[in-house]
Every structure is written in structure tokens, then in C-alpha cells.
């Protein structure tokens, strides 16, 4: 494989069952490629946390069909790369940016420590979030998380995160 291949794609409302369907398709693909269990688990974890974040935290814009949840998974010779997008109320972007910038500044041991402090002090929200998803993504990725907030209108933005999982350290 020399060029980037699109392995999985989703656009539209995202159900819990759909997340399972996407995970099963990824697992079948990775198994078929004969990749090892660690890379599979890393991609699996990053996908779960990314897709569950979309599922739990999206702010749906009534009547808008252009900014629904989107997910894409790519593979080239060096890495898996996944993009997850959802609409979000713009006022929520500042704390989210702060969290992403914080994890992007930490190395592996710093992320472990942040994970430990967060899990020991976590209160699980009614949506089932423990504030651990982004930290977990950063831990398994071992790469910086790229992100964008694209303004949709005066209230909403379209939030995208790009998570990269390198193949060289795990195969």
C-alpha cells in the first residue's frame, strides 16, 4: 500500500448500535490485514472514545443536514488516521480547546498522571462521561490530537478531531 486508503466512512445520525457496527468493520479489516492485537486495540480504543464523544456531546441543529456526525478512518504505510466531526454549541468550544491543548502538551508519563488524577476524582455525568475520553485518546495515539472548530452560524460550530495512530511502534 503506498497511498492513503479510506477504510471506513459514516455520515449522518449516529446511534449506539452504529458505533458497534463501525467497530466490527474496523476489527474485521485489521484482522484480515494480519495486524497485531496491540494496534487493533489502540485503533479500537481511539474509535470508541471518538465516536462516543460524538454520540454523547453533539448538539443537534434542527433541520440542518450539512453538519451531521461524520467519521472517516484512513490507512497508509505509516499510520491509521481517523476524523470525527459533530456540531457543537460554540460556547462549549473554549473548555474543549483548553482540554485538548493540555493533553497535547503532555508526554506519556504526563498523560498517565493526568488520567490517574482524573479517574480518582471523576464524577460520572448523566451522559456517562467521566472526563477521561480525550485523555485516553491521547494515551493510545501517542501523537498530538489535531482539531478544528468551523463556525456554522452565530450559535454552533462544527468540531472535528483527527487522531493518528502510528504503525511503526506497534508492528
Amino acid at each position: 500500500m503506498t497511498k492513503r486508503e479510506n477504510i471506513l466512512g459514516h455520515y449522518g445520525p449516529l446511534s449506539y448500535e452504529e458505533i458497534g457496527f463501525l467497530l466490527n468493520r474496523m476489527s474485521a479489516y485489521v484482522d484480515k490485514q494480519g495486524m497485531n492485537i496491540t494496534i487493533k486495540k489502540k485503533v479500537y480504543s481511539a474509535m470508541v472514545e471518538s465516536l462516543e464523544n460524538v454520540y454523547k456531546h453533539q448538539d443537534i441543529i434542527n433541520g440542518d443536514t450539512e453538519h451531521q456526525p461524520r467519521f472517516s478512518l484512513y490507512l497508509d504505510d505509516n499510520e491509521f488516521s481517523m476524523f470525527s466531526s459533530n456540531s457543537i454549541l460554540t460556547f462549549k468550544s473554549t473548555p474543549l480547546k483548553e482540554k485538548l491543548d493540555r493533553v497535547n502538551k503532555l508526554d506519556k508519563s504526563g498523560l498517565k498522571e493526568l488520567y490517574k488524577q482524573t479517574i480518582l476524582n471523576a464524577n460520572v455525568s448523566p451522559k456517562g462521561g467521566a472526563g477521561l475520553g480525550i485523555i485516553n485518546i491521547a494515551k493510545v495515539s501517542e501523537n498530538k490530537i489535531n482539531y478544528t472548530f468551523e463556525p456554522i452560524n452565530s450559535e454552533y460550530s462544527y468540531f472535528t478531531i483527527n487522531v493518528v495512530i502510528s504503525l511503526n511502534s506497534t508492528i
Partner: peptide, 12 residues
């Protein structure tokens, strides 16, 4: 075999 981050809080 696998648990997500929210489950890890509860397993703890």
C-alpha cells in the same frame, strides 16, 4: 477483553 474509559472509572 476491552473496556471504555467510563467503564474504567467504575471498574476502579
Amino acid at each position: 477483553t476491552y473496556f471504555n474509559s467510563a467503564s474504567s472509572k467504575f471498574l476502579l
